[in-house]
């Protein structure tokens, strides 16, 4: 089932983000560029949760693997962004593969806790392994002449990186829309809805779930790679449990059942925080109230508004018919 409206909504938002960035100045462009990198993280959580049935509380660890891969690879591959992002996807996918193999056979809540254990363990190790990660101080991105297929690109919170992130995200969303109309996606859905039944029908449910989780890892890794290029500095808190929790909240606010919700969730929470910071220090208090309000009145997230509106419209249509 292709969600064409979802795709249009998310692409329109991405387009609006890019257009807006050209109008509202360098500061906001940087904010939006960073937001786009987090959109990958939010989408990866939705994919893991809703399609691989793994409530992964370690998505930021996977995201961080991608970010560190770019930091480590940058000097070796002389600023070749395509290769750096490939490295980040591989790193994310590899970490997800290991995590997936460990938690796949656990119960639903067991998998959530299993990923918490992994996130906490990696965070502690990363904090202590300063030579590798820079620990709490973090590591800077080496200054290189960055280029994408020969086109020079300046790393940092700028319009070039925003556009690169947005284009990659648009390709990802369009690709997902395409795949979701194919037969293979029906199998994924069948596995997600009832793994046992799919298994009986002859599908290797475990392989499908692992594959989806690894893909979600590649997406998170790619986001992490872009984040490293935008931020030019990666500290260990990027991979921490609280970052994973943020990704869950973005996905949930956007709408956990739709992959197109993640970008909206990121923008809603991050832009609200950014604007609120201008007049109050009690940002967390207000974000907390906002989250409670979302849970109560928008339980399906922003994307859930569509079904709600659709119900409302059909009610009106029925009423007019009678």
């Amino acid at each position: 089932m292709r969600d064409t409206v979802g795709l249009i909504v998310s692409l329109s938002i991405l387009l609006a983000t890019c257009l807006l960035a050209t109008l509202i100045g360098e500061f906001w462009t940087g904010v939006l560029a960073r937001c786009v990198t987090w959109m990958f993280l939010a989408i990866s959580f939705t994919l893991a949760y809703s399609y691989a049935n793994i409530p992964s509380v370690a998505q930021a660890t996977v995201f961080g693997a991608g970010a560190y891969a770019v930091i480590w690879a940058a000097p070796a591959i002389a600023g070749n962004i395509a290769l750096m992002l490939l490295a980040s996807m591989i790193a994310g996918g590899a970490v997800a593969l290991v995590f997936g193999l460990l938690v796949l056979r656990m119960s639903h809540s067991g998998a959530a806790i299993g990923t918490i254990i992994l996130a906490v363990a990696f965070s502690m190790l990363g904090n202590a392994a300063i030579g590798l990660t820079g620990g709490t101080d973090g590591l800077p991105l080496a200054s290189e002449a960055f280029h994408l297929f020969g086109i020079p690109i300046t790393a940092g919170p700028n319009i070039g990186m925003l556009l690169l992130g947005a284009v990659l995200l648009a390709i990802l969303l369009a690709g997902f829309w395409y795949i979701s109309g194919r037969r293979i996606w029906r199998i994924v859905r069948a596995v997600q809805q009832n793994a046992l039944r799919a298994q009986v029908l002859g599908y290797n449910a475990v392989a499908y779930r692992i594959a989806i989780y690894v893909i979600s890892g590649c997406i998170a890794g790619l986001g992490g790679g872009l984040y490293a290029l935008v931020s030019r500095h990666v500290a260990i808190e990027t991979i921490g449990l609280s970052m994973s929790l943020k990704s869950i909240l973005w996905a949930a606010v956007g709408g956990i059942s739709s992959i197109y919700g993640g970008p909206i969730g990121v923008l809603a929470i991050q832009l609200a925080s950014e604007v609120l910071l201008r007049w109050t220090v009690r940002v967390d208090l207000i974000i907390g109230l906002m989250l409670v309000a979302v849970a109560l009145w928008l339980p399906q997230g922003v994307m859930g508004l569509r079904t709600r509106n659709a119900n409302w419209i059909s009610t009106i249509k029925q009423w007019r018919r009678t």
């Binding site: 949760y49 869950i248 208090l285 849970a295």
Partner: peptide, 21 residues
């Protein structure tokens, strides 16, 4: 009785509110 995520969002909201208060 709803999706696990809804409870998680609600209680995370409470966490933010309590911590900041």
């Amino acid at each position: 009785g709803k999706d696990m995520m809804i409870g998680l969002v609600a209680t995370s909201g409470l966490l933010f509110i309590i911590n900041d208060t």
